[in-house]
């Protein structure tokens, strides 16, 4: 394949991948804290039709998890333990593979920077861990401290706000990094260092995963919190694996492109610089786009 065709194929991959992954989670449409008041708008919702077969497969595994958790009340043993872990792991893969879970952000980061081969893996597991950890934190907070009567509505409303706020934070954080580079004229270090990218991943993942939330609520209602946390851990491993794939897709594309250009160092430096700037701009634009309904809704509420 000629280099121009190779470049075209890669470009097409990037465009298709990015356009198809602009699909975040949304707040539960069934729930409302106050029926008299209109809910704050969630961040943007999905744009493609669902595949009934894959949905059913995902929920088959979730029902299996529910079944194993229920059996923990009366049974124990290694097989049950492993079965729960496996069901949660597969559910995590299927669940994390759907839109959202910050795959777009991870993808953008690894298109925009040099990385070691293990870094997309670390980033994927970090995103999944934070995503699941926030769910655990919120559930425990509402359950143990606030003693919220209806955990699911409280958590759903908290998710709605956290989701909007994290996108705004991400946009502001990225804008600051970008401004440093543009305004102060020096090549910023943050994105190129682990501290920068991992901060960005943590900020962007600070929203509870609704799938994890459901699992924890279920285990709390059965008084099986520890098996629930174990299930959450296995589910996060599955999700982390899939999120890492998004990072590796970007990593492979960048490495391949740069290998082609390595003889021309000046061009390589320019492209690297442009990719980095585009990464910033993409993350800023993407975050604002996603949070826009939430921002508009908050402004409406303030001025009403």
């Amino acid at each position: 394949m000629s280099s121009s065709k190779t470049f075209l194929v890669r470009g097409l991959f990037l465009i298709i991948f990015l356009s198809l992954l602009i699909l975040p989670i949304s707040s539960n449409p069934f729930l409302s804290n106050d029926p008299q008041q209109e809910n704050i708008d969630a961040v943007r919702t999905g744009t493609i039709g669902s595949s009934v077969g894959l949905n059913e497969l995902q929920f088959d595994f979730r029902e299996k998890m529910a079944d194993y958790l229920q059996r923990f009340k009366t049974e124990s043993g290694l097989i049950l333990f492993l079965s729960l872990g496996l069901a949660a792991f597969v559910y995590g893969i299927l669940h994390g593979a759907g839109p959202g879970h910050r795959k777009t952000i991870i993808f953008s980061i690894f298109i925009g920077r040099d990385a070691k081969i293990w870094e997309p893996l670390a980033a994927g597991f970090l995103a999944a861990g934070v995503h699941a950890g926030v769910s655990l934190f919120l559930i425990l907070l509402f359950n143990l401290i606030i003693k919220s009567a209806v955990l699911i509505t409280s958590t759903s409303m908290a998710s709605l706000y956290l989701e909007g706020i994290t996108y705004i934070l991400l946009a502001v954080f990225t804008l600051l990094l970008f401004s440093k580079r543009i305004l102060f004229g020096h090549r910023h270090k943050e994105l190129a260092t682990n501290k920068g990218i991992y901060s960005m991943i943590i900020v962007s993942s600070l929203i509870p995963c609704p799938g994890a939330t459901m699992l924890l609520l279920f285990s709390i209602s059965l008084d099986m919190l520890l098996p629930g946390i174990y299930g959450l851990f296995c589910m996060s491993l599955g999700m982390g694996l899939v999120i890492s794939l998004a990072g590796y897709l970007a990593y492979a594309g960048r490495e391949g492109l740069f290998f082609k250009l390595k003889k021309n160092e000046l061009l390589l430096a320019r492209i690297s610089s442009i990719l980095e700037a585009l990464t910033y701009l993409f993350i800023i634009g993407f975050s604002i786009y996603m949070a826009w309904p939430f921002i508009g809704s908050m402004i409406d509420r303030v001025f009403q």
């Binding site: 459901m214 794939l245 897709l249």
Partner: peptide, 25 residues
Amino acid sequence: ANKSISILFILFLILSMSILDAHPH
């Protein structure tokens, strides 16, 4: 280049399977 294209194809196929799914909770 060939290897990266192959990897991209494989990863894209894996990810595109998931893209059909609409992320219900």
